[in-house]
Simulated scan of single mutants.
Amino acid sequence: MGVAKERVAQLEYSEFQGAMLDEAKRRRKAAKIIAVLGHFLGSGSTGPGGRPLEGLTVADIGCSAGFIADELAEAGAEHTFGVDIDVPGLRRAAGRFGHRVEFVCADGTALPFPDGSVDVLVFNHIYEHVVDPDAVVAEMRRVLSDTGVLYLGLGNRLGVMEPHYKLPFLSYLPPALADRYVRAFGRADHYYERFRTRRGLRRMMRAFHVWDYTFPVLATPGRFAGAELFPGVVGRLAGAVLAWVPRDVLRLLLPVVPTYLWVATKTPMMPRGARLPQPPERVRPL
C-alpha cells in the first residue's frame, strides 16, 4: 500500500494554491468573519462601512496574500497584523496593504506578540495545513487577551466533498490511501492536509470556551454576509428551512457539516448580538 509522505511546513502556499489569490472570494469570506465577530462582540454595524472592530488589535494567522487582513483593518482595527510563512504571499500583501497592515513572516507556533496582547485572532481554514495544530492553538491562547476572541473556520474530516481537491470522501481515508487517490485523479502527488472530526476539534479547543455559529450563519446568510454559502433561489429556500428546523434535528447533522464556524474565548463570555432564529450554541469540551 505504501507509506504516506512525511509532512513538512507548506511554504509558499499561494504559489500553488490559486484560491489564495482570488480576491473577490477572500473578501467575501472576510465579510462573513467580520459579521460573526461583530455579532459576538455586539459591536454595531457589520455592513459596508461598518467598523465592528473599532480600536482593537487584530491578527490574521495564515494571512497569505492579505485580503482578509485588509478587510479587518477596514472594519476599524487599530492595529492589524497578518502572519504567515508564505513569503511570496506576504510580499504581495505588503505591496498592496502594507500602509495599514503589518505583515510578519512567522510560524504559528511562535507568534511575535506578547502574552495577552491581541484582542481578535482569525484562524480561518488553516489548521489542516499546519504540522502541529495543537501547538498553534496553544500559542494563540497565549497571545489572546483575557477578553479577546478567536474566530475559527474549521474543516470537518467527515465532510463528504474534500474542499481542496474536490474528491468525495478523500479526507476519510488513511494517509497512504489518500495519496493514491489524489494521484489517481491527477490532483497532486500526495494528500497533505489532515482534517479532524468534530470530536477531535473539540479536543483541540478544550482550553477555550467555544460558541458554535455554524447554523446561525447557514440559517441567516444575509445577516452574516454568508450568501456564498447558499447561492441562488434554492439556497435562499434552504436557508429559510434551516432557520426554523428544531435545534435537536440540526444536531443530528453536526457530525457531517463540512465546515464549523466557531468563536472561542479564554474566559467565559456570551454572544452580545441580537437573538437569532438559530442562536449560537456552546460547544462542550471533552
Rank of each mutant, 00 (worst) to 15 (best):
M204Y: 02
V160I: 15
V241S: 00
V160M: 05
K166R: 14
L177D: 07
D86Q: 12
A73M: 10
E128G: 03
P279R: 04
P258D: 10
R183I: 04
E74T: 10
A93F: 07
L170N: 07
M161R: 11
M161P: 09
V101M: 04
A30F: 08
D115C: 11
V233E: 12
V249K: 12
W244G: 15
L152V: 05
T267Q: 08
A135V: 03
A106C: 07
L237H: 11
Y165V: 02
S14T: 05
P133Q: 10
L261V: 05
T214V: 07
L158H: 13
P255A: 05
L170D: 06
A59Q: 11
E74L: 13
C105A: 15
V136W: 09
G66W: 07
G49E: 15
V210N: 06
G38Y: 08
L201I: 02
A24L: 06
A238V: 15
G116N: 04
A75C: 07
A19E: 12
G38L: 09
V87M: 10
R198C: 03
R284W: 06
N124R: 12
A225H: 15
L53W: 15
L254S: 11
R282L: 10
P268G: 00
D146K: 02
Y151W: 11
Q10M: 14
A77H: 09
L201M: 01
E139K: 11
H79D: 04
A176M: 03
L167G: 05
A4L: 01
A178I: 07
R96Y: 06
A30N: 04
D86C: 09
G159L: 04
A69Y: 09
R157H: 06
A31M: 13
L276H: 03
G155I: 04
P280L: 05
W262T: 00
E228F: 12
H190N: 06
A9H: 02
P246S: 15
D115Y: 13
A77T: 12
E15A: 13
V160S: 08
G226D: 10
A176R: 00
R187L: 14
L218T: 04
K5Q: 04
A93R: 05
A135P: 05
T220G: 08
Y260W: 13
D189Y: 02
